[in-house]
Simulated scan of single mutants.
Amino acid sequence: MHPLSLWRWRHNPLYRCTDRLQGWTALVLLLLVPVLGVGAAYVIGDAAHRHYLADAEHRRQTLRLTTAVLVHDAPDHPEPGSAEARENRYPAPVRFTDRDGRTRTGEAEVLPGLRAGSSVEVWVDADGRIAEPPLNAERIRSRTMGWALVAFLTVTFAGGVVYRCVTVVLRRRNLAEWDTEWARTAKRWTTSP
């Protein structure tokens, strides 16, 4: 709400009913949107948190951690030793043995710069395919916060859209009333004596 919008509550002979309605709409949205936004963030964040916890637990129960060997060298990071290099992973071909004792190959995300023959741990599903690892607590928290933020911003955006729609409708109504009044008044101003 623009600070100059407060004039809509003062007594003024030019004051219109639509001005009061626009002011009240702004006030209600200003009070309601943060409350609804926090509520939506909590509900969506809680649902996302429970979903990611259940998914991580399901993955821990259905996947198994096994050791694989790099088939080829992993790509080097452009800035070896940097914090980014320690966080990034690169796809590289690996070889591992499944539960039935068969040798399999697949692609796994590994640290940059690892050489062929290096051992890495991979998560494997029941069919012997390399799978995404279960989410750790930090990633669950990060994704939960992301969904909560999206929910809050969505409610905020919706409040802005509602206010904009109300102002457009009221402006059209004001212009229509002005046209009607002008049609009655213009006759007196434009007729010659």
Rank of each mutant, 00 (worst) to 15 (best):
P34F: 07
V35T: 06
V38Y: 04
G39M: 04
A41L: 02
V43Y: 07
I44T: 09
A47V: 01
H49G: 10
R50S: 14
L53E: 13
D55H: 11
D55L: 12
R64E: 04
T67D: 12
V69E: 14
V69Y: 06
L70Q: 05
L70V: 07
H72E: 15
D73T: 05
P75V: 15
E79C: 11
S82I: 05
E84D: 14
A85L: 05
E87H: 07
R89C: 02
Y90P: 10
A92G: 05
T97A: 04
D100T: 09
G101C: 06
R102H: 11
R102L: 12
T103W: 08
E107K: 07
A108H: 01
V110L: 03
V110C: 04
L111P: 12
G113Y: 14
G117F: 01
S118Q: 05
S119Y: 13
V120Y: 08
E121L: 03
E121S: 06
D127P: 00
I130W: 03
P134E: 01
P134T: 00
N136K: 09
N136W: 11
E138H: 07
R141D: 15
S142N: 10
R143D: 11
R143A: 07
A148E: 11
V155R: 00
V155M: 00
T156K: 07
V161K: 14
V161S: 14
V162W: 15
V162G: 14
R164G: 14
